[in-house]
Design a protein around this nucleic acid. Sequence first.
RNA 1: GGGUCCGUAGUCUAGUGGCAUGACGCCGCCCUUACAAGGCGGAGGUCCGGGGUUCAAAUCCCCGCGGACCCACCA
Length: 754
Amino acid sequence: MDKRPDYKFIEKEIRDLWFNKRKDLFRFDISKEPRYIIDTPPPFTSGEAHMGHALGFVWMDFIARFKRLEGYNVYFPLGFDCHGLPTERKVENKLEIKREDRVRFLEACKEWTLKGIESMYNTFLRLGCSFDLYKVYRTMDKKYEALVQYTLIKMFNEGLIYRGKKPVMWCPKCRTAISMQEAGYIEKEGVLAYIKLKFGDKFVLIATTRPEMISSCVGVLIANNEYVETEDGLIVSKVFAEKNNLKIKRIIKPEELNGKEVEIPLINRRVKIYVDEDVDYNFGTGIVWVCTYGDFTDVKWKERYNLPEIICISDEGRIINSLEELNGLTVEEARRKVLDLLKDYLYRVEKIKHNVLSHTERQDCLSTLELIPKEQFFIKTLELKKKLIEWQKDIKFYPEEMRNRLISWIESMDQDWNISRSKLIWGLAFPFFKKDGKIYPIEIEDLPFDPRRDKDKIEKYRKKYGNVEFFEDEVVDVWVESSITPIAIIYYALTEGLEDVKDIEPYFEEAVKYLPVDLRQQGYEIIRTWLYDTLVRVKLLTGKLPWKEALINGMVLAEDGRKMSKSLGNAVDPNEVMDKYSPDALRYWALMASHGDDYRFTWKDVETGQAFMIKLWNIARYIYLNCSEVKIKDKPKELEKEDIEILNNLKEVVNKSFELTKEYRFQDYLKLWRKFVWEDFANGYLEKVKERVRNKDIKALWTLKYILRVIISFLHPAFPYITEKIYREIFRDEEKKESIIETSFREVISQLIL
RNA sequence: GGGUCCGUAGUCUAGUGGCAUGACGCCGCCCUUACAAGGCGGAGGUCCGGGGUUCAAAUCCCCGCGGACCCACCA
């Protein structure tokens, strides 16, 4: 053994062992019990592996390796989430391929994705992740696509999926509908325009942030509260008049206004006034106009009063069906222009900051969303609210508080899950067709089905059913694809080696038997997407929970304390860390994180990890140099008191290790072992017995060697490279195993019974 | 506007009723043949502020202050 561990060399040797020579070490055989199955996150392939991936995968690899040494048949799958808008954007911008050229565009997307996969794959293997490389899945695989389509058809047949025309959140920038999961509110600058609506010889004053929607104004609402007429002939809430020191001429009861008509300027439309309980009397003038569709309240009011629908914003986010001067303008342009046109009817305009519905899920978009009625596919999730609250109770969360995120998300949900994405190309097609306004599923034998590609299949349906229509301009929401991973990983295990699976159903039914799987690991930021979606889909499809436990990690922060991200320029590449130090040192950093909390990356932590590796190496080296003649199986009949003491200490540490791992407490686990290895064993026992070692005292030699053997087994889940290397240097010949993974805790600690 | 979580030595961090955990940094001594990326010894904290419950509070409750995140129709 060298004086210093040569990590470049160790990494190469051990990686070659794990991922080439003995790839089978991590192969999952579904028939062997007891099983332990981890539902791992398939990383999105539009980019390279980052520190967040490293954190999660190291956690899972710790669990996988620990469980293997505990005797479980572990399934640690690797998958890749391939489809989606960011990939399209990159292909469009970087490769400058036009989306109109669909075939080439899709090929380019695929190529780009494959490149991303290769780079991520390498990083993950360097980290030492003990994946089953025989079953790697990609959501763009034909096999995966067919499975997703099968699940959609199954849900459709059970009445869980429907097509309907509803106002959906539409991103004009991405030119697609998005789901609630992808939307959020961002504070943006806006205006609050006070507009006078003609009411006989007086004016009703309303306040709106969206004056550009004037042409779709179909009603005016007031609260059931006191209004006033001012001396200037304005009708406003009493509160507003008082706040603005307007002289009040007389009080007006809401009933007096109810049912009367006002005239909208510029478009000269007369609309009715309604009294409504949802109007906020204290906001603005206490009077609101209803436009279809300015926001979700407008949707509600439109339905409540059966108001006509006037669409004034196009898919591209431009004004339509409006005044000549406004048509064709963007929303922002129109907003400025209309205020100009309205001058005579404008009471005043305030600049305000308010929260605007935006496309928040993609950091590179953040565009304001519009509500536009569209025909889309939906999954009936709204009616599940109560059930979901019950279902989630049987899943254990680490940390427990993270359950609140799921619950509050479920409770706040107020529309069905819109799973259509229009105008996207790089995605999965819907396995449905439309005939005479009705929707029918594609036959299972034709899966995977893609109307943009499978001209022969289209022909078949045309022949059979006549004039049918396919959904060529819509793809499936990517979360629909990734929300069946617990089923998909088992499906891949059952169909290992098959590229195309024709009889999907029996494999699917078989896969259901293995649910729920043991663990889902993921970050808290996708609880409302991936975790929630998986719970919904798997439960609806199988009647079973997806997993027994969910382990949640926080976000990785950079050394400056801000979220680590490429766009902030504070990202550190995991490969850089592994080049400068070692995979094991990076793993030390990752394992010192606590559940659910944001966690800072610091080079100092990596150095601390590296120092521990070197310490461990040197302990092993001392034992290698001094204890090679004793064999672990030749335990001396009698031991000295100090030997028994350290062994008892070790026994406690071992027992504690099992307890800590049950709750995934990696940090405590490492602290525990670090203290034992460094203080109790190296600085304590080892120093104490040096004299006995010089005298070749077999009891001391055996105790040293045996304790090292236990240490490397229990540190193997954390630091697989160095422990594997030490195992090979010192114990391989004696135990006749090529890898420490082929040994077990049970054998190793069997001699610890004192 | 509502909710959740968080605030612990110079820095980061563990700890959910009973002498405050660990790392890094800092100070002193030591190149002792496994290891100076080491060893031995040491200093450092009103556990954000205030009030309450309790024999006992970093921990439970209330009110502030500060931060993160989630939700939400103030047009």
